[in-house]
Design a protein around this nucleic acid. Structure first.
Lengths: 255, 255
DNA sequence: AGGTCTCGTTCGGCCATAGTGAACTTTATA
DNA sequence: TATAAAGTTCACTATGGCCGAACGAGACCT
């Protein structure tokens, strides 16, 4: 989408990936369409698709191409790398069953929160669609919970890398504001996101560590503002979230 | 692994993918190790990693590289492409809860069965690890169930592409044998795998269609031989599987 | 501290090869 | 059957990926 002309990038690989990303956006496409959209000759695109098809990164049905199963296989390894990630699945579902709110488990990767598990009532759609998406740490409940357990130095690195961009008018955008918030999270024992990411969407999150200081990710529940801040609701939800984290950490220590 | 020197393949992209596949096998690695294993200079590998890192196909922690979240995001789109795939998740879990046996939902892609959902009692591991894996259609319960609903012509194409390799001594390896088996599947209403894929592993599967003739995938339950063939057990399990498929198809028609 | 080893990263030249446009084939449409 | 539109193949050329060597950063040892 945005023009990428960083130095030191392998153009061929970058183009192949751009093709994959195009197929993702469009839910599959044909050669000519891709070629036109990307401003490249059909023959070039054809070459990329042939290569990607060989590796099952794309599959071909007639003359229609879409993302292939090898991407699913590799992508899934990301969720399997840490045994804790795998274990987190059932706790995410349990959290949803108890609260009735959209529940997620996210891990910190490269300074962002990556959704590894989601559970929600919606039969269709969005829960699955978020997997692999990256959100900022400073504007989400899980993110702030994770940051609160990271050494200051690490927090600085992350801020230097990603900044503190405002996503709504409630987003924390200053280092001092964030420090104060993280201190509050530590005192309170859990993190709250009050529409800092999406307007009117509130969330409660807590981080989980393999052993003290070794954070592997965090859980959170998300809902419309009124569902979270209703009298007494926040404390009850917070207890449910932190209880799940405790149970998770206990079982994790036994693995 | 096996030497790939097909023509018409973009070497750069192929190498980048080989790096990804190496990182998958080793659960992450460092530059020198990859370079040595692949017989390429460090600088070359470095270039590939830099590019892949940029696109978040890999992430870097210190000087350790592993698969990145963008792979998870793209891979997940494979499970989201068809609304039926998404819907299948909860039925897969329901099937497991009812039978207590490992349950899967697989879709046919490019002549193979791709695991899109799995549910099993094991807290750890394997259920997740199979996602995205491809199995032959002729040696699995879901696969045979799917083949049984495909036009003969299509079956021929698939056999021509992948053959009928023997995976155990029970695998069906002839076109005539397969035709007879598929006919039996159609009469019986479900497919059975009697150690044709892994010795001593039996499975019962049934295919699901969006509308008659338009197969989108299939469900199956798998277990050790004795758990499936025990007196009367096969019929009971088969009923549970086919009931799930009916419910799934009903709900699918409403989407 | 100083020295050595290892590993990651940068750099410039060379030539393999990705990109290109045109020609060719196939499939769909009228 | 003719026409068009799409996919695929092909050979040429200049680009840019590959390589080896040099550089820099840590870790370890004495």
């Amino acid at each position: 989408m945005t023009a990428e002309d960083d130095p030191k990038m392998l153009k061929t690989t970058a183009t192949s990936i751009a093709v994959l990303e195009y197929l993702e956006e469009t839910h599959g496409a044909r050669v000519s369409e891709i070629a036109e959209s990307m401003g490249l000759p059909k023959s070039t695109i054809h070459g990329h698709l042939t290569t990607l098809k060989h590796k099952q990164f794309v599959i071909q049905e007639g003359d229609f191409y879409s993302l292939g199963p090898e991407l699913l296989r590799l992508g899934n390894k990301v969720r399997t790398r840490d045994s804790g990630y795998v274990l987190a699945r059932k706790f995410t579902e349990q959290l949803f069953e108890e609260t009735g709110l959209r529940s997620i488990f996210a891990a910190e990767m490269d300074g962002k929160a990556v959704f590894l598990h989601t559970a929600s009532g919606n039969k269709m759609g969005w829960a699955h669609e978020q997997l692999g998406n990256r959100l900022y740490l400073h504007s989400t409940a899980v993110g702030k919970a994770i940051l609160a357990e990271l050494p200051e130095q690490r927090v600085d690195q992350i801020i230097e890398k990603w900044g503190l961009p405002a996503e709504t008018e409630s987003t924390i955008t200053t280092r001092e504001g964030l420090s104060a918030e993280l201190e509050e999270v530590r005192n309170r024992g859990y993190a709250v996101n009050r529409g800092e990411n999406f307007r009117e969407l509130y969330a409660i999150g807590d981080a989980a560590a393999r052993r003290p200081g070794d954070v592997i990710g965090g859980f959170s529940v998300t809902g419309p503002a009124h569902a979270i801040v209703e009298t007494g609701k926040e404390e009850e939800l917070a207890r449910q979230v932190t209880d799940i984290v405790r149970e998770f950490e206990l079982e994790l220590s036994l693995v």
